[in-house]
Every structure is written in C-alpha cells, then in structure tokens.
Nucleic acid binder design. Structure first.
Lengths: 313, 313
DNA sequence: AAGGATTTGTGCGCCATGAGAACAAATGAA
DNA sequence: TTCATTTGTTCTCATGGCGCACAAATCCTT
C-alpha cells in the first residue's frame, strides 16, 4: 500500500487502539475529548477502507473480530513507535547533548572562546564542541556549522546575536616607549617603528580616528604580519608599536607586557565593527545550540566586550 | 503524549519518511501525488509540533539533523507497523480461513447442512465450521454466531438471504398404504393412524390446504413426537401417516421407504414459510462468512429448494 | 561567468471534509 | 417497567489544509 493511501488511516488506527483499551466508543471519546459520533464514524471509515469488520458491536457490547485483533496488534506497535518518535524529539529538544560545531576567526577562537572551553564542557557534560578556524565567512549549511562568529553584516535568513564590538588599536611594550618616547598624536607615528598588517597594498597607511578627527599616516616598520598573535609578540619584544584588534591585546595589557598607545584613537580598516553569533533561523533550535550561544553571550557580557546592549541582527 | 495530541502528527511522520527516502520535498510530493508546497508545510508543521528541527535544508540540499535521524528511525517503525496492520486486514478480508459459527434448527442441520460439510471443508481447507443446534432464534451477537438459519420473519438490522421454502406434508410407507388403503381426501384421514407433532395442544388438529380449499381434520394415532426424524422412522416402520417438513422426507422418498400422501395438499402450522440465512449487517463481511453463505445458497439452488428467486429480506 | 532548471517557502482563496449537535433506536441494570 | 447510557445517523457549518501562483535561492551546464 502506497504511503498516501495509508496516510488518512493512521489517525483512525490510533483511535481503534483507544477504543479497544477504553472498551467503548463513548469511553474512548471521553478520553480523547471528542464525541461518540465522531469515534463511531472514524471506526466506520476505517472498516470501510480496510474492507474488514474490526469490531462487532451493539449498544453496550463491543468485541473485536479475529481480523480486528490482528489489526489492533499492529496498530499498537504503530502507536508505540509514534510515541517513541515524539519522546525522542522531546529529549533532543531539551537535552544539551551532542555535537555543536562552531566556526570563528582564529584570533577570536584562541583569545576568547578557547579559554572558556573547560567551563563550558563542565557545565554541559554531554556536550561535544568542535571548533573550526574559519577566517572566511562560513557557509553554515554546506559546512555543517551550527554557530558562526561573523564580523560585519550578518547574512540574511539567520539569527544573529551581537557578541562583541571589535576595534583596532595601538600597543607597545613599556621598554620600547621608555627608549623611544610615547607618541602624543598619530602624526608622530612616522618617527616610530610600526608593526602593521601587511596583508594587502595600503596596509601601511593607517587611518586613525578620534571623535570628529581623522588622520592618515604612512607608517614604516621592519616587521609586519597578518597574524595578530605574532605582531603582539613582536610588540612585547620591544620591536615597535603594533596595530591589534583590541580583544587580542587584553591579556598582555592585564599582564603589563603591553600598554595602550594613543588610547583615545582607533584605526579604521577591514577589522572593525560588530561580531555576531550567527545560527540557522529555525524556530525551535536544538537545546545544545541554544546553550552554547547563551553561554558565549554570557561570557561576552561578563568580560565586558560590550555588545549585550546592541540590538539583534 | 496523549493520543489525541499525537493523532494529527501521524500522517506527517509518515510523510517525513517519504521525504527522507525520496531525498527532497519535490520528489516526495511527486511520489505521493501532492505538491511541494504541501510537503513543505507538512514538514514545517511537524517541526513546530515537535519543537525540533528535523531537516536542515536549502534549495537543492537536504540533511537530517541528529534529532531528525532518531525521529525518522521511529517513524519508519510506525509506518511498517501500519502497513502490517493493513496487510493483515487485507489478508483477513480475502482469505477464507478461520472459524464460522452457524446456528440452525436440528432438522435442517442434519438433513441439509451436515451432509454438505465434506464438500465445504474440502473447498476451503483453512475453514473451521462450528454447527450449533438452535431451535430457538439465536442472538447472533451475544452467542458469537456468524450465520443463523431462521424460519419466518428475519430480524431487522441483519442481512437475510432466502434459503428455502418449508412446507409440512404427509408421508407413509408403501406397506402401510397397501394394507390400509391410500386416502384420496384429507377427510379420510380420520380412519387412519396419523403420527402428529404432539408439541402443544391442538397439534392433533390438522389444517390441510390446497389451492383455495381448506379442510380441518381431527386425527388420531398411537404415536406422536416433536422429533421429525423419529416420526419419519415410525412412518417408515409402517406405523401410520406422518406429518413432516418436506425437506426432512427427501432422502426417504428417494430411497422408496416413504411415499407422499395427498401430495397436492400441505398442512398449516408453526413450521412453514421461508427459511433465511441471516448474518450481521456489516458492509464488508469477512470472506469466510461470505464463502459459507454463498456455498449454502448454491446448495439450495442446486438441490432445488426453490428459494433463489425470492427477494432478499 | 551567466543563464536556466529546479528547488524550498509563502500568500491567498477556496472547498472538501470531518466534527458537533440533535435525535432515534437499542440495551442492560436497577 | 423505567431509566441511563450506548451506538449510529442526519444536517449544518466551520475550519484547516491544499492547490496555484510566484519569489528567492541554488546548483549545474554551457
């Protein structure tokens, strides 16, 4: 029997099980919150469709035929399997368990997310987290990614929660500044060793802004790298003033191995704006994805990345 | 989950299985003869009801979530059980197998039905027939009776097929008639030994009819019994002229041990009229019940009981 | 790289179907 | 014998789901 011939029978088979267990149409109707006439017609429809009398009945008496007994046996199995399907769905919907795949740029993974793993995995003992370094925007569906950290405009069709605001700022070691002096204005940067991005042409031209002020400076340095971690280490070694996404400098600032230079200014380039946690726009997202998103948003708030007050994308 | 919450999900769970097996909504719709938009909405409804995303999908790509995999596993079991229920019903509906319980008056069972058992059971090797002697009208449902042979008006609410016409006639042995002469008119019966019913007062008053003629005769005999078989044997022994339902005399007539007396006349009493095969009025009666009814009607026609041309009750 | 075929998803209008209410007939218990 | 409650049927109507049309997206072929 093809599925579409079977489809309308499935609810009636389930009602048959209820009728047998309740002992009468009226009792089954009360159980289900329907009416005896509705149950009577459901049974009549089922018998017509199957071409078999399932129940012999008069007022006050109900007896399964031998064919009815066989049908009810299978109908009970059907109902049990359907209930198991629903129970499984409910468990999945409410248990933080299973794999969550998170894609984020390397810097954010290493500086912010990676250090939080022990706390997250301890909170959810059945959770498995897969971190995927992805400096290109991830294709969530094709890559099987549950959550992506995305800088800049979030893609349409997804939920986007603001995670943190990213700014590029300047940092140097106290030793470097003691030896070479601390610049008071961006224009003085031309007399300093500046560790810049060197990822594409024009990266040695820094555009610094503060309030309504905007200064463009061509800088020089004997070292450049598109790895913020390497630039940070070079700055800590006293090789010059480095441009860094501010979140990557946090630990060095806390340790005193770097200090902020021209702290009221920020550089404009390709790495500023709001970072979003992005996930698929479904109305009932799995508990584990929700748990990870909520955990990371809590981390961002707790550590003061300052995005919690921004509206959702 | 209560059954009535589950009922609307059952068809959609089945469609989910089709979607997964077909690989897309559009292919599933083609399989089922519905439309992609209908399938899309069915899946959306199911996900909303379960509170779980089952399928991650974009145009041209479809992938089950881990929760979806578990749900589909159970949904397949559900579908298999439902198919088994329908297959079982189909087999019951079309196989002449199982028990048929037939209730009939003793005489008819013994004279007409009992002799046909070998042929019937050979025709349907999986059939079991239970014959129940029942001279009182059977309560089909309470007694678990599938078919009843019923003389006189059939009960309402049941199907009634005319089986045979029953008449009470007179019979005697050739030896008796050679010794005592053959009556030419019912009025002459007063001079004969008459073996009557003796079941209740008045049974010795025979009312004989022929065309427009009606004669009432008070008869005497030294033997009476409400067992037609015993009266038949007494008549065969030459003890007198016996009143018998005509079908009970058939074999003795064929054997020559009895001959009809006043053959153009019949007696009126409690045992004449149409005998009906009666069974429950359901629109899809089981194949085995239908087979037995059809077989018996065939026997009646073949042996010339003359009821086939009568309309159904 | 562009175009085409085919996918999923949504809005709108419609209608087929199933349910509720009312009631009849039947039945078993008090 | 009466009453409470059952099954089953008729009539009416509300509603939920589907088909159609179409938009947006995507993958494959040229």
């Amino acid at each position: 029997m093809r599925t579409n011939e079977l489809l309308p029978l499935l609810p009636d088979l389930a009602v048959l099980v209820d009728v047998v267990e309740a002992g009468s149409f009226s009792a089954a109707a009360r159980l289900q919150g329907s009416t005896p006439s509705a149950v009577s017609r459901q049974m009549a429809r089922l018998e017509a469709a199957l071409g078999l009398t399932l129940l012999e009945r008069s007022t006050r008496r109900l007896r399964l035929t031998s064919g009815g007994q066989e049908v009810v046996r299978h109908a009970r199995s059907m109902l049990d399997a359907a209930r198991a399907a629903c129970d499984g769905a409910a468990r999945h919907a409410s248990t933080v368990a299973g794999r969550v795949r998170l894609a984020a740029p390397k810097a954010a993974l290493r500086q912010i997310i990676h250090p939080q793993l022990p706390a997250l995995l301890q909170t959810y003992p059945q959770l498995t987290l897969e971190l995927q370094v992805s400096d290109q925007p991830a294709d969530l569906i094709a890559d099987g990614v549950d959550i992506a950290l995305r800088l800049g405009d979030p893609p349409a069709g997804y939920v986007a929660r603001p995670f943190m605001v990213v700014r590029t700022k300047l940092y140097a070691s106290p030793a470097y500044l003691a030896e070479h002096g601390t610049p008071q204005h961006p224009s003085e940067l031309v007399r300093h060793s500046c560790l810049h991005l060197a990822e594409q042409a024009g990266d040695d031209e820094w555009c610094a802004v503060r309030d309504n002020e905007r200064v463009v400076v061509n800088v020089r340095g004997r070292y450049a790298s598109n790895h913020s971690e390497m630039r940070r280490e070079a700055a800590e070694w006293g090789m010059g003033i480095a441009s860094l996404p501010d979140f990557t400098a946090r630990q060095a600032l806390a340790a005193g191995t770097l200090v902020a230079v021209l702290p009221g200014w920020q550089l404009l380039g390709r790495y500023q704006g709001t970072s979003w946690l992005v996930y698929h726009a479904d109305r009932y997202r799995a508990a584990r994805v929700r748990a990870v998103v909520d955990f990371l948003l809590g981390v961002a708030t707790q550590q003061g990345y300052g995005a919690a007050s921004l509206p959702a994308g």
